[in-house]
């Protein structure tokens, strides 16, 4: 089956495509090809967008200043003492120096001409994007596979990697995240769609019903979230106890 058909089949949750990927001896290679295709597409759009903003140094300066102001506003909201407010005021007055510093850094020459250096940076971002998707997919697949086996699943890790690769297909939408207003909703749609594909794929690979497949996908991430919350609470209690001790 051509890669583009596999891609379309994954997006439409075509069970035949999932079964074919599970049983195909070259399933992993085809899965990685889909990740490569999606990653390069997203990488090209994102790095082109970054390249356009970097070519205008004043835009970079304004972006940095925007983040700086936002950070100071957040600190101002939580400042409780007169000393803290004074420090924030002084930092606000230091804005011009910060802008000059960014302009200075952007003007430092490189051995290669600046346009060549910028293109090389964009190329680096483009080729790194598929590997980022691959890394995230592998992490999700390994935890899902472990949970699925514990829940009585019978599939192998090779088939799980092949079918799990299909969950990257909806992330082609990430290519549009350079549009500021659309960035968050598009990311969420791609993530949710990928999750549904992973659940369907897990059910096919491990021959589980959809309830168990959903549990397999969500089990370890949920446990990690609970653990993180518990750890956060424990650290909070320790911090309060330490403060009380100082008081």
């Amino acid at each position: 089956m051509p890669v583009i058909d596999t891609f379309n089949g994954a997006l439409t949750l075509n069970q035949r495509v999932f079964t074919e990927m599970r049983d195909a001896p070259d399933g992993v290679r085809r899965g990685f090809l889909i990740i490569l295709m999606v990653g390069l597409l997203v990488g090209v759009f994102q790095s082109a967008s970054a390249l356009i903003s970097v070519t205008d140094p004043e835009r970079v300066v304004q972006d940095v200043l925007f983040s700086y102001r936002q950070s100071l506003e957040q600190q101002q909201a939580t400042a409780t003492t007169a000393e803290q407010r004074e420090v924030i005021r002084l930092l606000q007055e230091s804005e011009d120096e910060l802008a000059e510093m960014v302009r200075g850094i952007l003007a430092v020459p490189t051995t290669l001409p600046r346009p060549v250096a910028l293109i090389l940076q964009a190329l680096g971002q483009i080729v790194s994007t598929p590997l980022n998707y691959l890394s995230n997919m592998l992490l999700a697949v390994v935890f899902t596979h472990l949970a699925a086996r514990q829940l009585g699943g019978q599939g192998g890790i090779r088939a799980m990697v092949a079918v799990g690769s299909l969950s990257v297909a909806p992330h082609a939408l990430d290519a549009l995240t350079f549009v500021p207003v659309l960035s968050f909703p598009i990311s969420m749609i791609a993530w949710g769609w990928g999750l549904i594909i992973l659940i369907s794929g897990t059910a096919v690979v491990h021959r589980l019903d959809s309830g168990k497949a959903t549990l397999a996908v969500l089990l370890y991430p949920s446990l990690l979230i609970v653990l993180a919350v518990l750890l956060g609470c424990m650290l909070g209690v320790l911090f309060v106890t330490a403060l009380a001790g100082i008081g």
Binding site: G124, V127, L131, S135
Partner: peptide, 19 residues
């Protein structure tokens, strides 16, 4: 091998190697 492109970052090799 993607590191042949400057500023490129390889990811996923450890996990794939473990599998």
């Amino acid at each position: 091998v993607v590191q042949i492109v400057p500023f490129a970052q390889a990811a996923g090799t450890t996990l794939l190697g473990l599998i």
